[in-house]
């Protein structure tokens, strides 16, 4: 482990393998978005309809909201009052590769091919 060449080769191999993994994972098609809150399925949305979903909850006397926009095969979080705003910065997601996650609000939007009709709970 005492030579620079060893580490260059190791990291090069690691980077190449990560790139190949990314290429292989790009081929996940998705036509439905399943929205989970605290790992409980609350909504299953068809991606081909243009739709706007509001997710609200009140935690510790503070209202949390996420505005989710579905449009023509893709989905994103448009507005939210979480402190990080990472979910908004993720932008449009149309492949099933990466879920949209709002960590402070415990919200996960996962794109899959199957429509989940058995809701565990429905949040109004």
């Amino acid at each position: 482990m005492k030579s620079n060449k060893f580490w260059l080769i190791t990291f090069g191999v690691l980077i190449i393998s990560c790139i190949t993994v990314i290429f292989f994972l790009q081929k996940t098609p998705a036509s439905y978005a399943n929205i989970y809150h605290n790992n409980i399925l609350i909504d299953s949305v068809d991606l081909s309809n243009t739709n706007e979903i509001w997710f609200r909850q009140t935690v510790n006397n503070a209202e949390q909201y996420n505005q989710i926009l579905v449009e023509d095969g893709r989905i994103r979080i448009q507005a939210a009052n979480c402190p990080d705003k990472f979910c908004i910065h993720q932008g449009w997601v149309s492949s099933g590769l990466i879920p949209i996650v709002c960590l402070p609000h415990r919200l996960v939007i996962q794109l899959q091919n199957n429509k989940n009709n058995d809701y565990d709970a429905i949040v109004g």
């Binding site: 994972l25 605290n38 990466i98 879920p99």
Partner: peptide, 14 residues
């Protein structure tokens, strides 16, 4: 979050 799907971020983050 209880969603193992987040692990797909790992290659890019690595």
């Amino acid at each position: 979050t209880g969603t193992p799907a987040i692990v797909t971020y790992l290659p890019i983050l690595i």
